[in-house]
C-alpha cells in the first residue's frame, strides 16, 4: 500500500435516472460529480444503468454507448474524471454490436476498466437475458486507491464473482445496482433491501474487504427502487447507509489502514486454500 492514499472519500450517488434519456442523465451525472468534487470526494459511484434507467426493454438499443473519446457522452465524463474517479452505469455496445449492461471506471481522463454484467436475471419480474448479452469475464484492476473490482447487481447474488475478485487482488469491491423493492411484510424495510444488505455485510466480513454499494431510487412503471446504498468495512461494520427511497449524495471516508488491522487479526485471505478450491472444482466439473 506504499504510495497509495490511505484515506479516501467515497460518494454514493443514489439517484433516479430519466428512463431512456441519456442527455438528461448525463447532465445529472455532471451535477453530482461536481457536488462530490466540491465535498472533496475521491471517487463517486453511480447505480446500475445510471445513464439510461433500468426498465429499458427495446430502448436498450437506442441508448447504447461506446466508451471512447469520440463518444460525446463519454467525452464529457472523461473530462469530469480528471478531478475525481467515476463509476458509471450504461448500456455498452461492443464492436460486434452486442449490448451489455456495463459499469465503467474512469480516472484521469481515461477508462481504467469496463465490467460487462455476467449474470443477467431472466426470471420473475426480470427479463435482462432477452435484451442483453452476458459478460464473460471478471477482473480486478488497479486504481490510485489500490486494487478494486466491480460487479453489477445479480453478479453479486452469485458468491463466485466476489470470491474471484478477492483472489484477483481486489481489496475494495464496488457494487452497483438497480434493485427493485419487493417483499412487503411487517418489517419497516422490504425483504429485498434486508437481503442485499446482509449479503454485502457478509462479503465484507468473509473477505475482510471494503464493500461499497450504490443502488438506484425512484419508480419505473410499477417498480420501486429502494436505495439504501451502503459501505461496509473489512470488519463487516457499517460505515455509511443512505436512507431508503431518498435521492441523496452520501459521502463517507474509508481508511485503507483498516485492511492491515482486520487481516492481522483475522487472516482469512492468508489462509484461503485456493489449491483445494481448484482441485475440488476440477473434480466436481470433471475437468481432470
Amino acid at each position: 500500500m506504499i504510495g497509495v492514499m490511505m484515506k479516501i472519500k467515497i460518494a454514493l450517488a443514489q439517484f433516479n435516472s430519466k428512463l431512456g434519456d441519456v442527455k438528461a442523465n448525463l447532465e445529472k451525472h455532471l451535477e453530482l460529480i461536481e457536488e462530490a468534487h466540491k465535498q472533496n470526494a475521491d471517487l463517486i459511484i453511480f447505480p446500475e444503468l445510471s445513464l439510461t434507467g433500468y426498465v429499458l426493454q427495446d430502448l436498450a438499443y437506442n441508448v447504447a454507448l461506446r466508451p471512447h473519446q469520440e463518444d460525446p457522452v463519454f467525452n464529457e465524463l472523461f473530462k469530469a474524471s480528471k478531478d475525481i474517479d467515476l463509476v458509471v452505469g450504461f448500456v455498452h455496445e461492443d464492436r460486434r454490436h452486442r449490448f451489455y449492461i456495463a459499469a465503467a471506471y474512469l480516472s484521469e481522463g481515461k477508462t481504467s476498466h469496463i465490467h460487462n454484467k455476467v449474470y443477467l436475471p431472466t426470471y420473475g419480474m426480470f427479463d435482462e437475458g432477452r435484451f442483453f448479452a452476458e459478460g464473460d469475464s471478471v477482473r480486478a484492476f488497479d486504481t490510485k486507491f489500490g486494487r478494486v473490482g466491480m460487479l453489477i447487481c445479480e453478479d453479486f447474488w452469485h458468491a463466485s464473482l466476489p470470491y474471484l475478485l478477492w483472489l484477483d487482488g481486489a481489496d475494495i469491491l464496488l457494487f452497483s445496482s438497480a434493485s427493485p423493492g419487493r417483499g412487503l411484510g411487517e418489517s419497516p424495510r422490504l425483504s429485498s433491501s434486508i437481503w442485499v444488505e446482509h449479503t454485502n455485510r457478509a462479503y465484507a466480513g468473509l473477505f475482510t474487504n471494503f464493500v461499497v454499494h450504490a443502488n438506484k431510487v425512484g419508480y419505473e412503471d410499477g417498480l420501486n427502487f429502494w436505495g439504501g446504498s451502503t459501505i461496509f468495512n473489512p470488519n463487516g461494520e457499517l460505515v455509511i447507509r443512505a436512507p431508503d427511497f431518498e435521492s441523496t449524495l452520501a459521502i463517507a471516508e474509508i481508511d485503507l489502514n483498516q485492511l492491515h488491522r482486520s487481516r492481522a487479526r483475522l487472516p482469512l485471505l492468508r489462509d484461503e486454500r485456493t489449491n483445494v478450491v481448484l482441485r475440488e472444482l476440477e473434480r466436481i466439473l470433471g475437468v481432470k
Binding site: 423493492g181 412487503l184 418489517s187 419497516p188 424495510r189 419508480y219
Partner: peptide, 19 residues
C-alpha cells in the same frame, strides 16, 4: 400472515402516485 408494515406501504405508494 398477511400483515404489512403500513408506514412503509404508505411511503412506497404515495411516492408511486406522485412520481
Amino acid at each position: 400472515d398477511l400483515s404489512i408494515n403500513t408506514d412503509l406501504t404508505i411511503k412506497i405508494l404515495t411516492g408511486f402516485i406522485k412520481t
